[in-house]
Design a protein around this nucleic acid. Sequence first.
DNA 1: CCCTATAAGATTGTCGACAATGTTGAGCCC
DNA 2: GGGCTCAACATTGTCGACAATCTTATAGGG
Lengths: 228, 228
Amino acid sequence: MENAEAKPVENSQSLAERLFVTLRGEIVDGTIPAGSKVSEPELARRFEASRGSLREAVMRLESLGLLERRVNVGARVVDLTERGLLELYDVREALEGMACRLAATERSEEDLVELRRMLARHEQQEELQAGTGYYQPEGDFDFHFRIVQASNNDLLIDTLCNRLYYRVRMYRYQLGMFSPRAQRAFREHSHIIEAIEAGDGELAEILMRRHIRASRLNIEKKLTRGSP
Amino acid sequence: MENAEAKPVENSQSLAERLFVTLRGEIVDGTIPAGSKVSEPELARRFEASRGSLREAVMRLESLGLLERRVNVGARVVDLTERGLLELYDVREALEGMACRLAATERSEEDLVELRRMLARHEQQEELQAGTGYYQPEGDFDFHFRIVQASNNDLLIDTLCNRLYYRVRMYRYQLGMFSPRAQRAFREHSHIIEAIEAGDGELAEILMRRHIRASRLNIEKKLTRGSP
DNA sequence: CCCTATAAGATTGTCGACAATGTTGAGCCC
DNA sequence: GGGCTCAACATTGTCGACAATCTTATAGGG
């Protein structure tokens, strides 16, 4: 079945931006497969837009790190490699650790309220699905996203939320990174928020780094078990 | 004097890329002042190029974080704020700290040779200009650049070298960040490289973070002294 | 049979033009 | 005189067309 009615996302500002958002979604969820070629004329026909607007969207995707372009050759979706995934974890460990350190001193009262509310919501969902081992990654995403927001460092927020997290989502969707660390992750989240509430930046950073490194080790084990 | 013969950089790949590199340089060194408006038709006339190519360059500059664009309004050069500078230091502390940690275990033999050679060169320059207090920031740049390269993490390398460092240079050029920490910085560099050579990632990270934080504190003192 | 050179096709890079939107200034009303 | 309306201008967003380059298929020679 030809999924031809894939329309650019609703009324955003400019056509190029809508195309960008739509394509970003399709790349992240794998509708446009990793490693595949991206042809400007083809997408232009599909979205009934001019090639110029597509070009702008493609360039934005390139600078997001989701596409790789070579001059006079064209663009390809980045392919997902074990190495790339591990690199992502190391960068996240550094940046989100710093985000925690900053959040402990820079967070607003609203940030704390939001973090608490979110944690309660996750706990509830956790109890509902106890033992099923089925883990919705969006909850984890909420957590990391909110922490970063609380850091109050715009450069850090931009780097993580507008850049790296799309790559993270891409790996999660396409490599199916449902984590079996659900309950444990929840406890770790809880402790991190406590440290932030207490204003202990040093501890918050250590806990977050350990949290992310544990995820990384978990993935590493899976990967080496898959292809020894 | 009208510097009209400012030509796009030599034979790169595409015109848009040459324009991008040229404009990036002019924004970094302040030829195009921070906070000023960037008009596509004006630059197109100046470089005798089409507006489309300029547009591509402008968009790349936006995703580099050197320009801010608003739909149907246009692009402005970001303005340099005290807050932005301090934010930059925090992000660098996190990322370059991680780069050091990784470099300690992932560096190649060539990396070590290069680091040693660079350090010797800097020491020599240091002795030549001892006491003048005149500090060439390029040496410092070399150092941080090479360390990051040695981390062997492509995502980290890209984030720092192809993104953040242009912003760093912009602040240095335009706020005149000559550091009076020359000799001290050299000793710190030396210790960091020793830790990397010894394969002690933990120590290398701590030293690098301390090194960057010291720079940050130094700047902070200058700024508060300037406008209390 | 395989490798190389050449030509055909398709894709990307660049350009100028038109439509939509934002900005600026003059004139008018209060 | 100050504030508002509206029209003229400039800039940005979008489009289709042409030139330059790469890829692929075909034909020829070793």
